[in-house]
Amino acid sequence: MTEFDEIDLALLRLLAEDATQSAGALGREVGLSQPAAWRRIKRLTDHGVIAGRRLDLDREALGFGVTVFLGVKLATKGRISLDDFERAVSAIPEVQTVEHVLGLYDYRLRVVARDISDFERVLRRRIMTMPGVGDVEANVLLSEERRPGPI
Score class of each variant (00 low, 15 high):
residue 106 D to T: 00
residue 108 R to G: 02
residue 124 R to P: 00
residue 110 R to P: 01
residue 72 V to F: 07
residue 115 D to N: 13
residue 56 D to C: 09
residue 105 Y to C: 05
residue 130 M to A: 08
residue 61 A to G: 14
residue 71 G to L: 05
residue 75 A to C: 08
residue 70 L to N: 03
residue 96 Q to S: 12
residue 63 G to F: 04
residue 85 F to L: 06
residue 131 P to S: 10
residue 85 F to G: 08
residue 108 R to K: 11
residue 96 Q to A: 14
residue 119 F to K: 03
residue 93 P to F: 03
residue 75 A to G: 07
residue 68 V to A: 10
residue 54 R to A: 15
residue 60 E to G: 03
residue 91 A to C: 09
residue 72 V to I: 15
residue 91 A to Q: 14
residue 69 F to C: 10
residue 130 M to G: 08
residue 83 D to Y: 04
residue 98 V to Y: 04
residue 81 S to A: 06
residue 85 F to V: 05
residue 100 H to W: 01
residue 85 F to Y: 13
residue 132 G to S: 11
residue 81 S to E: 03
residue 52 G to N: 09
residue 109 L to S: 09
residue 65 G to Q: 13
residue 74 L to T: 01
residue 100 H to S: 12
residue 130 M to H: 10
residue 104 L to E: 15
residue 91 A to T: 11
residue 65 G to E: 12
residue 71 G to F: 04
residue 68 V to N: 10
residue 90 S to E: 07
residue 54 R to G: 14
residue 122 V to A: 10
residue 126 R to T: 03
residue 103 G to M: 08
residue 114 R to H: 12
residue 109 L to E: 06
residue 120 E to F: 00
residue 91 A to H: 10
residue 116 I to E: 12
residue 117 S to D: 14
residue 108 R to F: 06
residue 68 V to W: 09
residue 121 R to C: 01
residue 123 L to M: 14
residue 52 G to L: 13
residue 79 R to H: 13
residue 66 V to G: 01
residue 65 G to A: 14
residue 68 V to K: 11
residue 128 M to K: 14
residue 129 T to A: 10
residue 92 I to T: 09
residue 90 S to N: 13
residue 110 R to D: 10
residue 110 R to W: 01
residue 65 G to L: 11
residue 113 A to D: 00
residue 106 D to A: 00
residue 129 T to K: 15
residue 98 V to C: 07
residue 51 A to N: 08
residue 97 T to M: 11
residue 69 F to D: 11
residue 78 G to S: 14
residue 90 S to W: 07
residue 133 V to M: 10
residue 60 E to W: 01
residue 118 D to W: 04
residue 63 G to R: 06
residue 71 G to E: 09
residue 94 E to M: 06
residue 127 I to M: 05
residue 61 A to N: 09
residue 106 D to V: 00
residue 77 K to V: 03
residue 129 T to P: 09
residue 92 I to Q: 04
residue 112 V to S: 13
residue 92 I to H: 05
residue 121 R to G: 07
residue 50 I to M: 10
residue 111 V to M: 02
residue 54 R to M: 14
residue 70 L to F: 03
residue 133 V to N: 08
residue 56 D to P: 02
residue 123 L to K: 11
residue 82 L to Q: 07
residue 81 S to K: 01
residue 99 E to S: 12
residue 91 A to I: 08
residue 103 G to V: 12
residue 132 G to P: 11
residue 115 D to Q: 04
